[in-house]
């Protein structure tokens, strides 16, 4: 595993990155003398901005609200992409409804996002596509740590590996999943790599020491 220190490491300078995104050819006016290194002050923490999503008005959104009422918290669209925020328990009925009634027959992806500071720590995101409508919709649920959402394998078989990967990376167990084991990491791996509080170097070193008996050298 590559070392995942923040590039720039100890200098604590915010990585400017993106120089590459500049110009086609490198314009190289030699910098005038003595450009002192930028004072290494991280940008002041901004108040947490929110996603500027707009409500999603469509037949489908209304239909869903009618069918599920309270269980649908929000139907929004951002950058032309629609998403639904649902109550954790109702995700599977919604997927089922979308599949059977609205032809969303292709589950593109199941994934999660970790927000350690929030009470409901994880977003679980189901991305759906409908071949006949040529439309995508995302169904999101917010769940606290330890909550076991129901598996979607009964609705879409493809959820099998995708949910296993979510479990592997985030430690979200799906209730009723036929084979809830790690998929990419070794079975005896400790911790869940894509959680924000996962210490990359420590975990890596420990595993290398235990299993290979050498220093990882990172």
């Amino acid at each position: 595993m590559a070392d995942d220190q923040k590039p720039g490491g100890s200098e604590a300078a915010p990585p400017p990155g993106s120089e590459a995104a500049g110009q086609p050819a490198k314009p190289a006016p030699p910098k005038p003398a003595a450009a002192p290194p930028k004072p290494a002050a991280p940008p002041p923490p901004k108040p947490p901005a929110i996603m500027l999503a707009t409500p999603w008005e469509s037949d489908l959104a209304r239909e869903l609200k009618e069918a599920f009422g309270e269980a649908i918290g929000e139907t929004s669209t951002y950058l032309g992409q629609n998403f639904i925020v649902a109550k954790p328990g109702s995700a599977i009925p919604i997927l089922e409804y979308l599949k059977l009634e609205s032809d969303f027959d292709y589950l593109v992806d199941v994934t999660a996002v970790d927000w350690p500071k929030r009470a409901e720590r994880f977003d679980v995101v189901y991305i759906l596509y409908s071949f006949s409508r040529n439309e995508r919709v995302r169904v999101k649920i917010f769940i606290p740590d330890g909550y076991q959402p129901e598996t979607a394998v009964g609705v879409h078989l493809t959820a099998d590996w995708l949910e296993r990967e979510v479990y592997d990376m985030f430690g979200i167990e799906f209730a009723g999943h036929p084979n809830m084991r790690r998929i990419l990491m070794p079975d005896e791996w400790q911790g869940f790599p894509l959680r924000k509080d996962y210490g990359i170097l420590q975990q890596d070193e420990r595993w290398v020491q235990e299993n290979l008996g050498i220093e990882s050298g990172q």
Partner: peptide, 22 residues
Amino acid sequence: IIGYLHRGVEKIGENRTYAQFN
């Protein structure tokens, strides 16, 4: 059985700037 080539690309992405991840 997969995962022999797992390098944690998604985790690397979270630790790089947008241009650096390219």
